[in-house]
Amino acid sequence: MSARLVQIYLPESHIVRVEDILPRHSRRFWRETIPGGQEKYSCIVQQRYTERLLDELETELGSVEGFLLTVQQLEAAFPTIEETAETELRLHTDLPPPNALERFFSRDRLSTDEINDDIDESLHIRPSYLLTVTLSAIIAGLGMNAGQVAVVIGAMIIAPLLGPTMGLALAATVGDNRLGLRAAATLAIGCIFALLSGWALGIAVEIDPLVSELRNRTLVQPADIALALACGAAGVLAFSRGASLSLVGVMIAVALVPPLAAAGMYFGAGYPQSGGAALFLFAINLVCVNVAGIAMFLFQGLPPKSWRMTGGILALWTGILVVLALMVAGRIALGVGA
């Protein structure tokens, strides 16, 4: 059952407002009085309604002193809550009800607040974050140099760049400048550490520049653009439904960590041209992941604060992708890096 248990604490003087809001989003809710002149409301909310309930409660009661709201995942409820187009809880607005396609793709999605909370913890630049980035790059680099795909996949499960990458796409989608700056700073520092780790590895370990796992990170083909777009879309889709972070990490890290580690190793071993080619692949992958991520977030119904801002950012990322794709086409036509 895709539902949440939402608990609301507020002063008794505001019960009329909350009892006006809850029936529009929940079929089951109950009230109890708690010490200190507070009232507690507990309600079962289907996942598809959680987003709009939280938004309306924040708008109406967010500034009320003593207001507190918590959300918990609900495993089961009996009797079950059946949801059909006929029994759908509609808002009292002039907006048209969602069509069947919108219902299908948004019904299991986490609310924006839940996604934000999942991402927020990974945006703190702590020693543990820098250490996991370093270890991930080293493991990926050693795995590529030895031609061992399983080792490279093991590095992906660490998934250090997952949170910042998702945070960048989410910030662009909902128009959160603060989140975007935090995500960009964390991602940039993580990328620098991954690059430096690969560089140190390239100095310390003898590498074979022609080993397939390394050389593949210097060859950019149209298929690589498609792969990065698919990684971004699949990663956001899984992440926004509460999938395992390791699973999402494999989707995202496969497009980001290996080329960074490979670039550092090539630079450290004295192959600057190959290192530059690996960085070019990383740039394409990063742009693709953000384009696909923003598009998938929008496709699932995350509400932008400003369509103009979100559309502008998506257009900018898409424009950069077009330029990079043209560069790939030019390299292929000239036989560069073949």
Score class of each variant (00 low, 15 high):
residue 3 A to T: 05
residue 7 Q to S: 13
residue 8 I to H: 00
residue 9 Y to G: 00
residue 13 S to H: 11
residue 18 V to S: 04
residue 18 V to P: 00
residue 24 R to P: 01
residue 27 R to G: 03
residue 28 R to Q: 11
residue 29 F to H: 14
residue 39 E to N: 12
residue 43 C to Y: 02
residue 45 V to H: 05
residue 47 Q to M: 11
residue 63 S to M: 12
residue 66 G to I: 01
residue 67 F to E: 04
residue 79 P to V: 06
residue 83 E to Q: 13
residue 85 A to Y: 11
residue 87 T to H: 11
residue 90 R to S: 07
residue 91 L to W: 03
residue 92 H to Y: 03
residue 94 D to H: 13
residue 96 P to G: 02
residue 97 P to Y: 12
residue 108 D to S: 13
residue 113 D to T: 09
residue 115 I to F: 08
residue 117 D to N: 12
residue 120 D to W: 10
residue 124 H to F: 04
residue 134 T to R: 06
residue 141 G to C: 04
residue 146 A to Q: 15
residue 150 A to D: 14
residue 153 I to G: 05
residue 155 A to L: 06
residue 157 I to F: 15
residue 167 G to F: 05
residue 167 G to E: 06
residue 172 A to L: 06
residue 178 R to E: 14
residue 184 A to H: 05
residue 188 A to R: 08
residue 195 L to D: 03
residue 197 S to L: 07
residue 198 G to S: 09
residue 200 A to Y: 09
residue 220 V to E: 01
residue 220 V to Q: 04
residue 221 Q to Y: 07
residue 221 Q to G: 00
residue 223 A to S: 15
residue 226 A to H: 02
residue 230 A to Y: 09
residue 230 A to F: 13
residue 231 C to A: 15
residue 250 V to I: 15
residue 260 L to T: 02
residue 261 A to M: 08
residue 261 A to G: 11
residue 267 F to H: 08
residue 271 Y to G: 08
residue 275 G to L: 07
residue 277 A to L: 09
residue 281 L to Q: 14
residue 282 F to L: 14
residue 283 A to H: 03
residue 292 A to F: 05
residue 296 M to A: 13
residue 299 F to G: 08
residue 301 G to Q: 07
residue 307 W to V: 13
residue 308 R to A: 13
residue 310 T to I: 03
residue 313 I to E: 04
residue 314 L to N: 08
residue 314 L to V: 10
residue 317 W to N: 03
residue 318 T to M: 09
residue 322 V to Y: 11
residue 322 V to C: 02
residue 325 A to V: 09
residue 331 R to V: 00
residue 334 L to F: 15
